[in-house]
Write a protein that binds this DNA or RNA. Sequence first.
DNA 1: CATGAATGAGAGTTCATTCAT
DNA 2: CATGAATGAACTCTCATTCAT
Lengths: 186, 186, 186, 186
Amino acid sequence: MARSDAVRNREKVRQAAETVLSEQGLSARMDEIARRAGVGVGTVYRHFATKEALYQAIVTARVDVLLAEADQLRESGDPRTAFFTFFTRIVADATGKKAYTDALRTAGIDLKSEQAAQAARMRQAIDDLLRNAQQTAAVRRDAALPEILALLRGATMAAETGDYPAAVLDRSLQLLLDGLRPHADI
Amino acid sequence: MARSDAVRNREKVRQAAETVLSEQGLSARMDEIARRAGVGVGTVYRHFATKEALYQAIVTARVDVLLAEADQLRESGDPRTAFFTFFTRIVADATGKKAYTDALRTAGIDLKSEQAAQAARMRQAIDDLLRNAQQTAAVRRDAALPEILALLRGATMAAETGDYPAAVLDRSLQLLLDGLRPHADI
Amino acid sequence: MARSDAVRNREKVRQAAETVLSEQGLSARMDEIARRAGVGVGTVYRHFATKEALYQAIVTARVDVLLAEADQLRESGDPRTAFFTFFTRIVADATGKKAYTDALRTAGIDLKSEQAAQAARMRQAIDDLLRNAQQTAAVRRDAALPEILALLRGATMAAETGDYPAAVLDRSLQLLLDGLRPHADI
Amino acid sequence: MARSDAVRNREKVRQAAETVLSEQGLSARMDEIARRAGVGVGTVYRHFATKEALYQAIVTARVDVLLAEADQLRESGDPRTAFFTFFTRIVADATGKKAYTDALRTAGIDLKSEQAAQAARMRQAIDDLLRNAQQTAAVRRDAALPEILALLRGATMAAETGDYPAAVLDRSLQLLLDGLRPHADI
DNA sequence: CATGAATGAGAGTTCATTCAT
DNA sequence: CATGAATGAACTCTCATTCAT
């Protein structure tokens, strides 16, 4: 079988895994992923050594997309919009998708070494957007990266649960982001 | 009658389960819980019919403690302090404890019917504290209960991960709560 | 506690066990038997060393009753009535009672040595009734004890299943017994 | 594709299960069945979803064989031989095989719905043979299907016990069947 | 390189039996 | 002697991973 077939299979598996993990979380079975990809389990294992590796691959792919978006936003001009949009974008991306949180953990700690670089880039991207936003007074200057990451993680995890209607999630995120803007108490 | 022994063992099991679940989350094995409690698995099952029941018992006990604290806080006079302290208290209680989030879910949805009453009480307690705080202008009047619960859930989940140093969690919570206060943009 | 209490307890346990085993068969739990007897499991074990022993005690008691009936029937005069009534009596006694079959096995093989004597008496009782019935030409002379016991066992087991309405069991037993009478083909 | 292997293994499992269930009855352990088949437990479960399903598969297969024999016998000409041979055949098939009775229960009650059709066919087969035999005066006309089934069940259960030598079983069955023939009392 | 059957180490749960109270 | 809590081996079933075809 030609090389291109293998590449195609890898992609089929990745997509199936993304769907299944989104729906069922980490407890999804490998058989189910294979079934949805239309291949045998063996093929899944050919492309991804373990369930963990498959999962990491998905997260990596997702973070790559997010990183690209961060780049675009950073270059789009308005630092305020860039920061808030990215924050919102990440949360929206996770909404209702189980087992996706780790995309953010990736930006934090506990990652496999191969992904250290990507994690650093994510941290850097958020840091850049944050600093730009702070320099234009769009975000409180006393908010440092670590706490912003923690808030982002929490927002993402709440969104993942699937327990909250979109409107509620929106309002809660609005409150959160609004609170990050510089303000004077009334 | 070995009643006192039984009570003691039940408590040993409960504590062991609390510890183990805190450390390992819901995937913790019943054998491990029994081992830590210094009893046989059968004893664990004598006191708690299923793994789920054991878990629910722990969550229920914890939420009861929190509810008592909510009562005290509400009667302690200052609505501002009461609200922010309770929010902080819940998050602090969850910090580093895996599988604890569901205490909050309890206040949301998806609970077993026996715990419906407790869940309702939790919602009510938070609602009371929120309304009081809003009436004294300690919290934005446009923040409704559902979004507050979502924010609380997120903060709790982030705390549970164990991925963030206490200082970072503190600062992130500070930012979040500060943002809930009424304010004018600068 | 006085001796009489112990005796009373033993009897309570025996009766509870008889009921429970009749209803649920050998898979009945010891806890359930104790509960129905109104005692603790420990008490059940004080009187009967194992579940098997308890079961054997019940069977033994039942067979004793049946043996007494066999005596009465043998002395009641009519050999024909005696044989058919006893056969019917045994089957009726087992109807719908799970795990009772072994009363008959007792008359066959595989019994614990303590019950060998009782088993022998049962065989003897049936043999006596059979011979008497054969001597008065109430039963075919070519039917020997072993095959009669096998037929009795089968009839009893079918009755125990609880799968057949009383009327059906009656008719089947009627056919069986009728077939045991001396007859000429038509 | 290891299809042929799978088929072979399924058959190995089925045979091992048949053997083990014959020897030990329904209480046989799945581990033991796997061991005898020379496969892992997982393989047993791959082919048969539950212990119950495995058991049902065996019974179903056996009843299918019996049904085929019933067909042959019905078409073989002599109604008398057909009926008595089939009755004998069923009992012989069960002799010494624990947990086989349910093949007959299948013809009665309490069956899983998927086997309703097979059960009905078994009833029908026996009914056909019975009616044919009755029309040629080989069997008493007052013996209806339900009681015949009850007698068959009892004979089968007695045979299953393994408590009776073949000669005894033979004679008991001879007595039973002989009694089913039309006759005049002497 | 793909397949999916096979593996087997657990995981939760049950229950006859023991023994501290 | 009675109690019932404790025990832990057994049992069924699951699923990530391996490997023969």
